[in-house]
Nucleic acid binder design. Structure first.
Length: 609
RNA sequence: GCCCUCGUAGCUCAAAGGACAGAGCAGCAGCCUUCUAAGCUGUUGGUUGUGGGUUCGAGUCCCGCCGAGGGCGCCA
């Protein structure tokens, strides 16, 4: 927001260097750590170190020489417009902005930009984010929720930062796990179908648990049990073959049950406000991927060991000319000719590159699949896709329960829908206690926003690579470093503005009167404005590093500043009309910025809570 | 055996190679006749696992060690 002033200063420092025979050094700009004022800071350590290295030093230790340079630059530079004063501290030179201009510029910018405050200029590059890849015929648990929230947030961040963004979902709708469910359903439950989208989806997941138990080798199993188990397994494999051969009956059964899962998935995506642009189904890339295997063999990238009873493999390290093992060797086609996860990912990447023309491709996938992803990208490179360089695996830590890893096979999972329902219950209880006057009709909607806010925030305020042990009491905590704390800041801002408009009979859509900050600002006003200023740069940083945490941490800091401001600074009670208007504008700017940052996290703040 | 993460307050987590390592939870002490107390203020709590190295400067980068988790050709 102050690029012009920064350039101006930089220009003068370069002139100073030239005149004093000091090596020209790239300047590093930093925020000033603590101050009651805003400003930017530049350090001279590097310059002093370079000078010493060039043999031009004055024999002083670097920190002292740097401090000396800072002092000299300060005297050299003189006055700069919009900079109120300059201060040399240690080896740093601090430039403080003129308070009224700075405050006015920030607040006016936010209010003029509205929802787009913080967004970046178009980058002319298309990014695809692939996330929400649950298996069908299973149920959506909080591990899937982390994946989906992370992917959606990332998509929102890169989009806001200026990239054209495509959201892709890739459900695993085929494989032995899926067939297992269909087998058990067909054998034991055919014709049954519970009422309710979620009930039906969860019912399928329970069938999977039951089927797994029937098909698993048990300790101390009797001859009869063994025979029965083997017979079941043979039936299951037979079913898979019939699916593979396109048997219409099996396909019908598969499509019907798949739809039940997808209905549930789509309802959860609706709850999470996720709008997928492109659906890729694993089953759809199965056939095309076989042709890719042939192509890779023909081009001597893959090795066909089938004549010797083996599979089709790619010796990735060898083909890349690596001597140390890094990507190793992996199978891209089973000896029986069926495809694997890796095979299908190759086919999918081809579609992404050729049909959707993506410049960058982000895969939001569990960290445990890191090697698989690296192998995929390496093969894409061997295959000749230049975009392989711009594939990025966003590896996130897995979600487990206090009692251990989740297991869909054992039915030991925390279902997203159960957690969500529990969140609603808890929020409604808090509303009944804290805001009994809230109309019944509003409560459900508010509870949903707050419950989801708490849940999303608890997941997004942890860095990508960290594992999460999911504790429902922590996830649904509403105090302190949480989503509701931030939403509450928004609500408080809203309530001030609402009251003001009511007093003046001013409609919501009317702009606030123009205001000026030509009074002595309270420290809390200063800090709030400073927080608001940080937002646009942090959006770029978060998009560049693919890290929602940056935004999550930021919006907490912003809300924290607002709460402190709210407590310490009177707005509507202010006697001076011009101060009141200026503060109202600041409140509106803070509200807007909180909303914009929360939106990137997929969190909506209610108007009241 | 090899590879990838990670190790920061009692607990959960932050910290572009920069100024004093910060929040929340938990603990302690205060603040509601006021724009919503889902809040605010104060306070207790640290040899950043360990030993070296690079650098003017290291929680951050490099190497060794210790410890935790994950992964390594026909699962996804």
């Amino acid at each position: 927001m102050f690029e012009k002033e920064q350039q101006d200063i930089q220009f003068r420092i370069k002139a100073f260097c030239a005149e004093n025979d000091i090596p020209d050094t790239d300047l590093k700009w930093l925020p000033i750590p603590f101050s009651g004022e805003w400003g930017i800071s530049v350090s001279f350590f590097q310059m002093a170190a370079n000078e010493a290295k060039a043999g031009k030093g004055k024999g002083l230790p670097v920190p002292q020489r740097a401090a000396q340079i800072a002092e000299m630059v300060k005297n050299y530079i003189g006055a700069i417009s919009n900079i109120s004063h300059i201060e040399a501290v240690k080896a740093y030179l601090n430039f403080y902005f003129s308070t009224p201009e700075y405050a006015l510029r920030v607040v006016d910018t936010v209010l003029e930009s509205g929802k787009s405050f913080g967004s970046g200029a178009p980058k002319g590059e298309r990014v695809m984010v692939e996330y929400a890849q649950p298996n069908t015929h299973h149920s959506f648990h909080i591990g899937h929720a982390r994946n989906t929230m992370l992917g959606e947030t990332l998509a929102r961040i890169v989009q806001f930062a200026g990239f054209e963004t495509v959201r892709a979902s890739y459900p695993g709708d085929i494989g032995l796990g899926v067939i297992t469910v269909i087998w058990a359903y067909d054998k034991f439950y055919r014709g049954q179908e519970p009422q309710g989208v979620h009930e039906r989806g969860q019912w399928l997941a329970n069938i999977y648990v039951e089927a797994t138990r029937l098909l698993e080798t048990k300790e101390g199993e009797t001859e009869d049990e063994k025979k029965r188990r083997e017979a079941y397994d043979a039936e299951r494999r037979e079913l898979y073959k019939r699916w593979d051969a396109g048997d219409p009956q099996v396909r019908q059964l598969w499509l019907e049950t798949r739809e039940w899962s997808l209905d549930e998935l789509k309802d959860i995506l609706r709850i999470l406000d996720v709008k997928i642009d492109v659906w890729f189904f694993e089953s759809e890339v199965d056939e095309p991927s076989k042709a890719i295997v042939d192509e890779l063999i023909a081009r001597d990238i893959a090795t066909d060991e089938r004549p010797n009873g083996g599979a089709v493999i790619v010796k990735i390290d060898e083909k890349l000319g690596l001597t140390k093992e890094k990507y190793r060797t992996n199978v891209i086609l089973r000896s029986d000719g069926t495809t694997l996860y890796l095979t299908k990912d190759l086919a999918l990447a081809k579609v992404k590159f050729e049909q959707f023309h993506v410049d960058r491709s982000i895969y939001v996938v569990d960290v445990r699949q890191s090697l698989h992803m690296q192998q995929t990208f390496a093969i894409l490179k061997l295959w000749g896709f230049p975009q392989a360089e711009k594939c990025y695996h966003l590896a996130y830590g897995f979600v487990s329960l206090p009692e251990g890893a989740m297991s869909a096979r054992r039915g030991r999972v925390a279902l997203f829908k159960d957690v969500y329902d529990e969140a609603l219950t808890r929020v409604l209880a808090v509303i009944a206690e804290k805001n009994p006057g809230m109309p019944e009709a509003e409560r459900e909607g508010v509870a949903s926003k707050i419950g989801l806010g708490a849940l999303s925030y608890s997941m997004l305020s942890v860095d990508n690579n960290k594992d999460i042990v999911f504790d429902i009491n922590e996830a649904l905590n509403f105090d302190g470093h949480t989503g509701p704390y931030i939403q509450n800041a928004y609500v408080r801002a809203n309530s001030i503005l609402k009251k003001f408009r009511a007093e003046r009979h001013m409609p919501d859509q009317d702009n606030l009167p123009a205001g000026r900050f030509d009074y002595v600002l309270d420290i809390h006003e200063v800090e709030l404005i400073e927080q608001i200023t940080r937002f646009p740069n942090l959006v770029q940083q978060a998009a560049g590093e693919y890290r929602p945490l940056i935004i999550a941490a930021y919006v907490y800091d912003l809300a924290n500043s607002f709460h402190s401001f709210y407590h310490a600074v009177q707005v509507l009670q202010t006697d001076t009309e011009s101060v009141k208007i200026a503060r109202l504008r600041l409140v509106a700017a803070a509200k807007q910025t909180i909303a914009n940052a929360l939106a990137l996290l997929g969190i909506t703040a209610p108007e009241v809570m």
